[in-house]
Amino acid sequence: MTAPSPTPAQIATGFRLALDAADRFTGATAPNPPVGCALLAADGMVLAVAAHEAAGRPHAEGAALASCHAKGRFDAVHTLVVSLEPCTHRGRTPPCAEAILASPTRAVWYGATDPNPTAAGGAARLEAMGVATRPITDLDHRDARALAARASRLIAPFATRLTKARPWLTIKQALDAEGSMLPPAGAKTFTNETSLTLAHDLRRRADAVITGSGTILADAPLFTVRHVKDPRRQSRRLAILDRRGRTAPAYLDAARERGFVPSLHGDMSEMLAALAEDGVMEALVECGPTLLSAFLEAGLWDEHVIIRQRAGGDTVSRRLA
């Protein structure tokens, strides 16, 4: 008789929960990627869901296993689903692959393969030790590829920093009904509340905001996250392209008071390399039309989010490079 194990539908449900948990901490984990994990019993019951919340905090797998311990459910663990391949690296936290091997886990489903050569290899290690380990794309479920795509997007900024030595660059562009980026006189925006929430969610997931001195001079923007919950514990970077030294010291002081680490740069490539060196994985470009065009024309972007003002409500379009 075949031993019971979670069905593909139950595994897919657990994987969605893991992805949702990871997404809540996007923007808070640098220089580590956001990762989520769910633990299932043999009958498919979800025993625990956890995420990596910040660098130095437990990894998602360890946090989920610890939660099961605390709830007295540890012995019931059968299947572990996680958005990123379990690591084999010992840093500030022990290797996740070894924590899994020390548990009753019999099967592991993971989303993205770890792009970090220092930490990769967890899937092979688990499989060699008798734990059935498969990528989520192997799951016999209609949503398998969509779930894998979500997992890949979660770690895209982490992978970009590793492979391109620069942050993942998200360009946000707001246009009025006539296609202009300039708000009416006396206003700082022309988008509606829903679009503002989206804009602040883009800030929430970013480790840095990139702007230009012209934007600073025009309306001294705050660049803070106000319309959504921000789980970030450390300061966010504020990188200002300012070739002529026009940014006032008073603005930089005020930015520090708001929790930013501001820096001035005269060169776009130097700025991006410096941000990556500092651990920035994703940067949100919020600037005027001239600098925005420079990023696009140089091919220095990964995601372009366009918010358009319409009579019946704003529309949002996204494209990937």
Rank of each mutant, 00 (worst) to 15 (best):
P289T: 05
G62F: 04
H52N: 06
G130T: 10
P289W: 09
T93W: 13
G121C: 04
L126R: 07
L139M: 04
L284M: 13
R145S: 14
M281N: 15
L175W: 09
G288E: 10
A151M: 06
D43C: 02
E286G: 04
K229T: 14
T133D: 08
M129N: 11
A276Q: 04
E270F: 01
S293M: 08
L80K: 01
A165Y: 02
R57E: 15
S263W: 04
A146F: 05
P183N: 00
M181Y: 00
D267K: 01
C87A: 14
V225Q: 05
L175M: 08
L275N: 00
H59L: 06
S180V: 08
A64T: 10
G266K: 03
E277R: 15
V261C: 00
K172W: 08
S83F: 03
G299C: 01
P104H: 11
L169M: 02
M45E: 15
R166H: 10
E98L: 15
R233E: 15
A218L: 11
L17V: 05
R92P: 01
G186R: 08
A276F: 06
F74I: 03
D75I: 05
R232P: 02
A112R: 10
V131S: 09
A185P: 10
T2L: 14
D114Y: 01
L275C: 08
G266S: 13
A273Y: 03
A120C: 06
W168H: 15
A298G: 05
I100P: 07
D201A: 15
K164D: 13
E193P: 02
I307Q: 13
R24Q: 11
E178N: 14
A54M: 01
G212S: 03
L217M: 12
L222P: 03
G186E: 08
R243E: 13
H227P: 00
T215P: 07
T194I: 12
G186I: 03
A3C: 07
C68I: 00
A273H: 11
L19H: 00
A239D: 04
A63R: 03
H200Q: 11
T215C: 09
Q309I: 05
K172M: 13
A38Y: 08
R57Q: 14
V35I: 13
G312P: 00
P33R: 03
K188H: 11
H200Y: 07
R16Q: 10
A239L: 11
A298S: 14
T191S: 11
D302I: 02
D201W: 12
S317N: 00
R310K: 13
H59D: 09
P94E: 04
S152M: 09
H200F: 05
L147N: 01
R16L: 07
L139G: 11
A30N: 02
A112V: 07
A102V: 01
A21I: 03
P167L: 07
K164L: 14
C37L: 03
F295E: 08
A165G: 02
L252S: 06
A42L: 06
E61G: 00
L272M: 11
L272T: 10
R150S: 13
K172Q: 12
A64G: 12
A165C: 07
L272Q: 08
L292H: 13
A42C: 06
T194K: 13
C287A: 15
A128F: 00
P104G: 09
T105F: 02
E98I: 11
A218C: 06
